[in-house]
Design a binder for these strands. Structure first.
Length: 793
DNA sequence: CCTACTACGCTTTTT
DNA sequence: GCGTAGTAGG
């Protein structure tokens, strides 16, 4: 009995086809990760390949982590030498070693979208470009797609000749790229582009990695873009042992430059390629698969395949219609609550939706019923203002050339260095061709600074002092020191007392992350930590052990599976989105349909499609027809269980209706006219024009409670009183976490890092608990319940 | 230089 | 409806 006996015939074949290019068309739930991990095991155990020579590339850290774990389990300690990595972190590792050959320093910083926007803003100002006509977002997108297509500045300029608009883009692209270089920074796209540049320019470097990575695996190949394709192509150029795994039906990242042709034309690029299809699905019931197949077969650009399962038919796909999104959300929360009472677990459920904005209503209803849930996505932890502030300090300490970072913190907390002073510094820096920080160091050479001069001096001294400390302190200690030295807590309190506690917790969590990072990595440098932090996605942090309902976008859900799935907001104009409906490019609708396919195939046992006839979007109530994707599912696979709202007749009439938009929406004119009713959907203003004056401070914020409770123990009895319903989560933050302590003084609790201990004291601090725990091994620690994830034992 | 108010734009998806 | 960015006034 070997580990390979559990594989089916196609899977086995994929595992033993180790030499040459291999395209693995792996349908949803067909066990592709199993195949990949077994293939790696086979290479090592049966073919005598050194783990050192194996590379596996994924898109997310989470996927990389999972694969790493499974490979470890399969082959043990040796697996540590297999390189399992995301595209971006692979590139970071390579660039840290060789980027000096391209004229950057090895300690380059990585810019996220927020940083990019700041650079673009400064660039536009410098070039006198009106950001009203040329939107920053638009500019970023244009530059990003150019990079994804491996078009460099000169290439872009060439292609822009004769086109005024594109000439403006070209000038921004050039200036942007020069700014990044000056700041010794790379954006996400650069990480890939520069690696390709490096390989193309330096054959000797490419040789190293071609020799190193003799067997290359790429997961989610359908989502690769041109740069990634080129990167893989270059790496596999010598040995051509390239195994790519993907499903063209799950290609959903075109907006990010993913090129579906990479998978569709694989055999064209590699004529000697073997192609193996994995069509047996181990996840879903036949009914769910039939529904998925029925939807996806409306697409034209795809490789023919058909999923089947040995599982039975299972329940029908349920359709639930509601009058409003409010009722829809309430139904979902109510039903989950009911099912959990009957014995299901929270973690059995996922609610998937098209846009992040939809999470709001759902969250509210979950809170009202006390269901523990996690929202994946939305604002990334590392994109929060307080985290970015601290990271900007670290970046300034680490890389003095990072102007974006300096500008962010130069006056945070307020130290009297305002726009005017900053401008003088910048002028000086430009004149003397030095960095902004150098200009600050030479502040006494700049005339007209007046009192600011002393303030700048003390800022410079502050940063220098941090740099000195950074040599001996751990990252975590350095963060604490920064927070204390600049009196960041007081700054948060002054700025917005309501959110200060939450924000401080986030800062504490950052410290925790630094500690964990140091524990799990050897010889941690500040540079490493900052890079790690820059490349973390939200989905990476979802912990499987947590028993909570997951709310997320369809995009985030890819690769996951749940016994029971709700697809909410199945409406024309929402899903498929309006943008797509108005696009002249029919492939966009196909991408949207693939998204539907991804959503449907997440469900193992039960799939529920919900649809609201009216929905508030951007302050307007919109009425829409049922999604065409629902209509593409054969009626015999559906059952209407609207949970009490008896509307079957009308509902099915709408479904059967030959008018593609049913009787529920108004005229649909694709005339291209904007606004009003011309987009085919009835709209009207819900609110009277004479709004209440915004006196009395803030508009009534959504009532959010940063707590949940077990369904059978309502939160009130947990000691979190009704007062806590008052808005806890403030601007910019999201991701409501469960922290109702399920323990009290005297209880034994366990902590992920510190092990077990006894609760010595608990103190209410605003919306949180400060818990004092005496740990068996680590002594007494005081921590906030909200993020310590203490569990009673 | 900082604060408070207004106006705008946003919502498709994110490594 | 909400958050951000920009502007006017202190």
């Amino acid at each position: 009995m070997s580990i390979y006996d559990t594989l089916n015939r196609e899977q086995k074949e994929a595992v033993i086809t180790t030499e040459g290019p291999l395209l693995l068309l792996a349908g949803a739930g067909s066990g592709k990760t199993r195949v990949l991990t077994h293939r790696i095991a086979y290479l090592i155990d049966e073919c005598g390949v050194s783990p050192w020579n194996i590379l596996a590339i994924t898109f997310t850290n989470k996927a990389a982590g999972e694969m790493r774990e499974r490979v470890d389990k399969l082959i043990g300690a040796e697996a540590a030498h297999v390189w399992v990595s995301t595209f971006h972190s692979l590139c970071v590792r390579i660039l840290r070693r060789h980027i000096d050959l391209l004229g950057y320093d090895a300690d380059f910083t990585i810019y996220d979208t927020d940083d990019q926007k700041n650079v673009i803003k400064a660039v536009c100002k410098r070039l006198n470009i009106d950001t009203k006509t040329y939107k920053e977002k638009e500019l970023i997108r244009e530059i990003s797609s150019a990079k994804n297509e491996l078009i460099d500045v000169s290439g872009y300029e060439l292609s822009a000749i004769g086109d005024r608009n594109r000439c403006v883009y070209a000038s921004v692209y050039r200036e942007y790229q020069e700014t990044l270089r000056k700041n010794n920074a790379l954006d996400f796209d650069d990480l890939l582009v520069k690696t390709v540049e490096l390989f193309r320019a330096k054959q000797e470097v490419l040789n190293i990695y071609q020799e190193r990575f003799q067997y290359i695996h790429v997961d989610e190949y359908q989502d690769t873009n041109t740069v990634q394709f080129e990167l893989v192509h270059l790496l596999a150029g010598r040995y051509r042992n390239l195994c790519v795994v993907g499903d063209d039906d799950q290609s959903i990242y075109k907006f990010r430059g993913a090129n579906i042709r990479n998978i569709l034309d694989f055999e064209h690029y590699f004529p000697e390629a073997r192609v193996i299809k994995l069509e047996q699905n181990y996840r879903s019931t036949q009914t769910i698969l039939d529904a998925a197949n029925a939807v996806i077969c409306n697409n034209t650009a795809r490789k023919e395949k058909s999923l089947w399962t040995a599982k039975g038919k299972g329940d029908k796909v349920r359709l639930c219609q509601f009058d409003s999104a409010f009722e829809e959300a309430d139904f979902i929360a109510e039903e989950i609550q009911r099912k959990v009472r009957k014995g299901d677990s929270y973690r059995d459920f996922a609610v998937l939706y098209r846009t992040n904005a939809q999470s709001r209503l759902l969250e509210e209803k979950m809170i009202m019923r006390g269901l523990p849930y996690t929202v994946v996505g939305g604002t990334n932890f590392y994109a929060r203002a307080e985290i970015k502030d601290i990271l900007a300090y670290l970046k300034t300490i680490d890389n003095g050339r990072d102007e974006v970072a300096i500008r962010r913190i130069i006056n945070i907390p307020k130290r009297g260095i305002g726009a005017a002073t900053l401008e003088k510094l910048e002028d000086f820096a430009e004149l003397r061709e030095c960095s902004l920080f150098e200009a600050m160091e030479r502040a006494d050479e700049i005339s007209g600074l007046g009192k600011s001069s002393a303030k700048i001096r003390s800022f410079v001294a502050l940063i220098r002092n941090f740099r000195k400390k950074a040599l001996t302190m751990t990252v975590a200690e350095l963060i604490s020191d920064v927070v204390q030295s600049v009196e960041y807590e007081a700054y948060l309190q002054d700025n917005d007392p309501d959110s200060a506690d939450d924000r401080l917790e986030n800062v504490d969590e950052l410290i925790t992350k630094a500690v964990v990072y140091a524990e799990t990595h050897e010889e941690v440098t500040l540079t490493d930590f900052l890079a790690e932090v820059a490349l973390v996605a939200d989905i990476d942090k979802v912990e499987d052990e947590d028993d909570r309902v997951l709310l997320m976008t369809l995009h985030s859900a890819k690769g996951l599976e749940f016994p029971q799935v709700y697809l909410a907001g199945m409406e024309e104009g929402l899903f498929p989105s309006q943008m797509v409906l108005f696009s002249t490019d029919p492939t966009e609708l196909e991408e949207e349909r693939r998204l539907a396919y991804v959503g449907i195939t997440r469900a193992k046992d039960q799939l529920t499609l919900t649809y609201a006839r009216s929905r508030m979007t951007r302050g307007e109530t919109r009425y829409s027809a049922i999604s065409r994707f629902v209509r593409e599912i054969p009626q015999e696979l559906l059952s209407d269980e609207s949970g009490g709202t008896k509307r079957e007749d009308k509902f099915f009439r709408a479904l059967k209706d030959s008018d593609p938009f049913g009787d529920l929406t108004g005229s649909f004119s694709g005339s291209g006219a904007r606004g009003g009713q011309a987009d085919g959907l009835y709209r009207y203003r819900e609110h009277s024009e004479d709004k209440q004056p915004a006196s009395g401070g803030k508009p009534k914020a959504f009532v959010r409670r940063k707590a949940t409770a077990q369904a059978d123990k309502p939160f009130i009895t947990q000691g979190i009183g009704a007062l806590n319903l008052v808005a806890g989560i403030s601007k910019g933050t999201q991701g409501i976490q469960d922290y109702v302590p399920q323990f009290g003084v005297g209880d034994r609790v366990s902590h992920t890092k510190f092990g077990e201990g006894e609760v010595k004291a608990m103190e209410r601090v605003n919306k949180d608990y400060k818990v004092t725990v005496d740990f068996d091994q680590f002594g007494t620690k005081i921590m906030y319940a909200s993020f310590a994830k203490l569990k009673r034992v």
